[in-house]
């Protein structure tokens, strides 16, 4: 059945440790992944790696799915599947253990204190995230307009489906693009 056993094994060996190394988001694994996949193992060419990076911008999902494209290149569908599982199962198991421990101790004083203590940290992180993304996205008028418009819409209409707003954002940008502004 699987004639690419050595490749599949190689994918697991490379990607499973990266799963646990992706601290602070998927982008943390790009450098080590590029080193392994392009330079050491020569699974993909430098140009292919750059193309895959670009693909991640217009497909949904975490950008570390780039690993699935490498898997696809060297071992077809099973390569993509094995790559995806290697990338997400180790970190998910760790998160599961943490979530389980967290819920098991509900109601304990330290749990309540931690929950309260995390609230301002989480708030600070999200606010910083908004600013960083705004700057990253070019920070021009149409970006700012859509951001504020979406936040107002979500506040005013509590039942609003977010999918509608994402599509609305695409339409606004498309109109601006077509108008050539």
């Amino acid at each position: 059945m699987m004639r690419d056993d050595s490749n599949l094994l190689g994918l697991i060996v490379v990607l499973a440790p990266l799963s646990l190394a992706s601290v602070g988001g998927a982008t943390a694994i790009y450098a080590p992944l590029q080193h392994e996949a392009v330079e050491l193992r020569q699974w993909v060419t430098p140009q292919e790696f750059l193309d895959y990076f670009a693909i991640m911008r217009f497909t949904p999902g975490p950008s570390s799915l780039l690993g699935a494209l490498i898997g696809w290149k060297i071992a077809g569908f099973w390569g993509a599947l094995v790559a995806t599982l290697s990338l997400y199962i180790p970190s998910s198991l760790l998160c599961y253990a943490a979530a389980r421990t967290w819920h098991k101790f509900r109601g304990r004083p330290w749990h309540t204190a931690t929950e309260r203590g995390l609230l301002p940290v989480a708030a600070g992180l999200v606010c910083a995230g908004v600013l960083a993304l705004f700057q990253l996205s070019g920070g021009d008028l149409k970006v700012g307009g859509v951001i504020v418009g979406v936040a107002i819409a979500l506040t005013l209409f509590r039942k609003l489906n977010p999918m509608f707003l994402l599509i609305a954002g695409a339409i606004v940008f498309e109109l601006v693009f077509l108008a050539g502004i």
Binding site: L119, A122, V126, V148, V150, P162, L165, G169
Partner: peptide, 26 residues
């Protein structure tokens, strides 16, 4: 362009979350 619009709307949603998370702070 459409993808950039989706991304901008997603930031707008994050702004709303930022507002709720600030409200949750004692």
């Amino acid at each position: 362009a459409a993808m950039a619009g989706v991304a901008a709307a997603a930031i707008g949603m994050l702004l709303k979350t930022a507002m709720s998370s600030v409200q949750a702070v004692p």
